[in-house]
Computed example of a mutant assay.
Amino acid sequence: MKVITTWTGGRAFTAVGDSGYDINMDATEAYGGLGKGATPTEMLLGALAGCIGIDVTMILRPHLEKITKIEIITDGTRKEEPPKGFTAMEVTFVIDGDIDNKKVWRAIRLGKDKYCSVSDSLKADVSFNLILNGEESPELV
Rank of each mutant, 00 (worst) to 15 (best):
K112D: 05
T5L: 13
M58L: 13
R106F: 08
V91G: 02
G37Y: 04
L48A: 07
K123Y: 10
A124L: 12
L45A: 04
F128T: 05
V118P: 03
S121F: 06
W7N: 10
E29G: 11
K103R: 12
C51E: 01
G37T: 07
L44E: 02
I23T: 08
M89R: 03
G9E: 06
K84Q: 15
L64C: 11
D18I: 10
D113W: 06
L110H: 03
T74F: 07
L45S: 01
M43V: 12
F13A: 05
T39W: 00
G9W: 05
G46N: 04
T6V: 08
I108G: 05
I99C: 05
V16S: 00
L140V: 14
M43S: 08
N133W: 00
S137T: 13
A107C: 06
A47G: 10
M89P: 04
L44A: 08
K114V: 14
L34Q: 14
I99P: 01
T74I: 13
T28G: 14
F86I: 07
G53K: 01
L48C: 00
D125C: 00
I95P: 03
D75S: 15
E136K: 11
V104C: 00
V3F: 13
N101K: 08
G35T: 10
V94N: 02
K114R: 14
V56A: 06
E71L: 14
G10P: 00
L122E: 08
E135K: 15
T77H: 14
F128L: 03
D75M: 15
T39V: 11
S121K: 10
T8H: 00
T8K: 12
L132G: 00
L140I: 13
A15L: 05
A124T: 14
M89G: 01
D22F: 13
G50Q: 06
I54G: 01
L34G: 15
I95T: 06
G9P: 01
F13L: 09
A107N: 02
V56R: 00
E29H: 13
K114Y: 11
I73P: 01
E80M: 10
N129W: 07
S137V: 03
Y115L: 13
L140P: 03
P62H: 12
K84H: 10
V3G: 11
T92D: 09
D120Y: 12
T57D: 03
M58Q: 09
T41C: 01
K114N: 14
F86T: 06
D26H: 05
V56T: 04
G134P: 03
G17F: 10
V104N: 00
L140Q: 12
T8A: 08
C51G: 02
G33K: 03
G97N: 05
T74L: 08
A12C: 00
I131R: 07
K36V: 15
A49K: 00
H63T: 07
E139D: 02
E29W: 08
T28Y: 12
E81S: 13
G134A: 07
R11T: 08
E71Q: 15
V104S: 00
F13R: 04
L140A: 09
S137N: 09
